[in-house]
Simulated assay, not measured.
Amino acid sequence: MGSTRRSYTAEYEAQSTSYVIGGETVAEVARNVGVHEITLGKWVKMERQERE
């Protein structure tokens, strides 16, 4: 059985990361938007690096 990768739009990622940067927890946002916490954490890390 092969695994399938889901792809997300840049807009979806940006919206999701904005919730975390705005003060919500990664776990809460990940649960609400339907992505894994590690995936969302990576998006947030990349966004914070870009902002620096």
Rank of each mutant, 00 (worst) to 15 (best):
M1A: 14
M1G: 14
M1L: 12
S3R: 05
S3E: 03
T4P: 07
T4F: 13
T4S: 15
R5W: 03
R6S: 01
R6C: 03
R6W: 08
R6Y: 06
Y8I: 04
T9S: 15
A10F: 09
A10G: 09
A10I: 09
A10Q: 14
A10T: 13
A10R: 11
E11G: 03
E11L: 11
E11F: 07
Y12E: 15
E13A: 12
E13V: 14
E13K: 15
E13S: 10
A14V: 07
A14C: 04
S16P: 08
S16D: 08
T17D: 08
T17G: 11
S18T: 10
S18Q: 15
S18I: 00
Y19D: 07
Y19T: 04
Y19N: 09
Y19Q: 09
V20L: 03
V20Y: 03
V20F: 04
I21M: 10
G22W: 04
G23C: 06
E24N: 11
E24K: 13
T25W: 01
T25S: 15
V26H: 09
V26E: 09
A27N: 02
A27W: 00
A27E: 02
A27V: 07
E28V: 05
V29P: 04
V29L: 01
A30Q: 03
R31Q: 14
N32G: 06
V33K: 07
V33H: 01
G34F: 04
V35E: 02
V35T: 12
H36F: 09
H36V: 06
H36Q: 05
E37V: 13
E37N: 14
I38A: 13
I38E: 07
I38G: 10
I38H: 10
T39E: 03
T39K: 08
L40W: 03
L40H: 02
L40G: 03
L40N: 04
G41W: 04
G41L: 06
G41V: 01
G41H: 00
K42G: 13
K45I: 01
K45W: 04
M46F: 10
M46V: 13
M46T: 14
R48K: 10
Q49F: 11
Q49G: 05
Q49N: 12
E50K: 08
E50L: 02
R51T: 05
R51V: 02
R51M: 12
R51D: 01
R51N: 04
E52D: 12
E52A: 11
